[in-house]
Amino acid sequence: MNIILVERAGTSSSYQDRGRLNLQYIGIVQGGCIDEDNFLLCNAILQNNSNEGLIEFAYQGPKIKVVDGNCKIAITGDVIFNIIKSSGTVINGECYRSYNLNQNDTLDVLTTSNSVYGYLGFEGGIDLQKYFGSVAVNSRSNLGPNNGKKLSNNDKIQLKKNIYTSDEYILRRIPEKNRNTTIRVLEGPQEEYFSNNGLTTFYEKSFLVSNLTDRMGMRLEGSKIDLVKSPNIKSEGIIKGSIQVPASGQPIILLSDHQTIGGYPKIAIIASADYDHLAQTLPGTSLKFKKINLREANISYQLKIKTRKNIIASLQKI
């Protein structure tokens, strides 16, 4: 049997897939991987089912040791990692390719670089129980496998089965580094709750990504956004990427593990094409928002999907 020991869990590592659908009416959010592109690329390299569960980590990732058996791994994102072979040889890891690990080899995911999230996948997948059709962990609601908790030190990762093949694969094309700090958004459903000054502030001033940012939401700091109506609306369903503004005038962007219903007015919502990039933005980064219309948003999203498909098509045996 393949058994992998988590020697160090890392800052915030959890099992994720593409989440749970059509359960928001009982308070269960879709959740799942934050950066869909990097999630899908990781499974593509390993030739897994596209929705196979893997480990999402933030900043410092896990350090794992193969206790028993062999496995093939891949890491996607902008990640610095080492593979320490049982012989003691250290390999500086490259993202977007697979590596074979043998018994007593160690993988040390040191840190993400200029980004927050990275993905670690295993060929064939991790043996995890699904809850509501998904292995995504939502640690705030204790939902999902591993008792709904993030990875901890000394956890054991059990792979589904030993389908180890010695071939290694690489993506010849990799995602371009996106350093754009202007994020595209669409008009929010409660624009009328904001004064003209408030809207001008939002679209013309810069906002700093604060440290109070996690899988649930990203808090921004900047000039106060002026509301003209009461800062409460009748609570209504939330979609990820919604930008709500409470009475403080400081916007909060709701990310993948958002609450399902919310009562603050939403000034805008992130264009889907820019969601992954936004969620990867480090605290301390200064962002600006640019309004686009539905047609432009659709075109930009189609371009993102097409680019991803082209990258996946570049997979080759090494």
Partner: peptide, 23 residues
């Protein structure tokens, strides 16, 4: 291509997958 339908007091908000269905 429907990801979620969320009923609230006075609204139904539908989250759809743009790769499958359009607004």
């Amino acid at each position: 291509g429907i990801k979620n339908c969320t009923p609230s007091y006075n609204k139904l908000i539908i989250n759809f997958n743009l790769e499958v269905i359009s607004f």
